[in-house]
Design a binder for these strands. Structure first.
Lengths: 131, 131
DNA sequence: ATTGATGCAAATGATTTGCAGCCCA
DNA sequence: TGGGCTGCAAATCATTTGCATCAAT
């Protein structure tokens, strides 16, 4: 994977924030530094970076995919009103050693486990909601 | 919520299967019994039924939303190749009594927890993959 | 009778893709 | 220098919505 300037900036911006932005939000952030970058480039790079394990693609966070520059194992909580995602200290941040044990209960080869909390973020809880 | 004929059939078909179908798959299933039903009706009803807690909307299962007619608490595994979802016996199927404990670690009001496994389904593991 | 529900078609919105030119390794 | 990468615009694909009509309560 070539390290192009746009790829560098995308990665840098994603790592700078703690906000788990959507591809489009990140596009807007990056555009401040690279006005001519296209949405397609951001989408393509996020997909590639997540395949390379350099960023994490979050699933189940509403209609828009979100990305996390922090590749350390940690748990998220997702606001059901506005969609925002935050990190949360959860008791389940443990090892994955028990994964193979449950393999044959469904016939699938188990690869991983995602735990995600759902809730209401402080902003939405105060009626400041947007989405 | 009125119990229309289409609503009844949709619910019946979803409950009949164990496949966690997408809205579109369910639309095709229902159409066998109601050729004139529209996709919009299926989408609208699934959304409404899930709001009413009569079916479960699955998140994080790829690009298409999937639904589960089984409202009992249980855990899913999601094939990263074809997107199919299956039920899995997991050690985490426990009570949610510990949820409030972690509330203030992130400022969110914690409402629930979703645990989802990722893996490769038997079909895809044998090279019979489609998606 | 009222009012929510339906079917149709068109709109939306996120994401993807074709393509010609560009630039990193 | 060559093949991956970019920007642009158009294409996809899932899902939603406006609207006139229909049907459940």
């Amino acid at each position: 994977m070539r390290m192009t300037y746009q790829r560098e900036i995308i990665l840098e911006e994603l790592r700078r924030v703690k906000s788990h932005p959507t591809a489009d939000e990140l596009y807007l952030m990056v555009r401040h530094r690279m006005p001519r970058i296209s949405r397609a480039t951001v989408y393509r790079n996020l997909e590639q970076l997540s395949e390379a394990g350099m960023v994490v693609k979050l699933m189940g966070t509403g209609n828009q995919r979100r990305y996390d520059g922090n590749t350390q194992k940690h748990t998220h909580i997702h606001c059901i009103k506005c969609g925002k995602v935050a990190d949360i200290a959860a008791p389940e941040d443990m090892d994955a050693s028990s994964l193979p044990d449950i393999q044959n209960s469904c016939g699938y080869k188990v690869l991983g486990r995602q735990i995600e909390y759902t809730g209401i973020c402080p902003d939405c809880n105060n009626g400041k909601s947007t989405a």
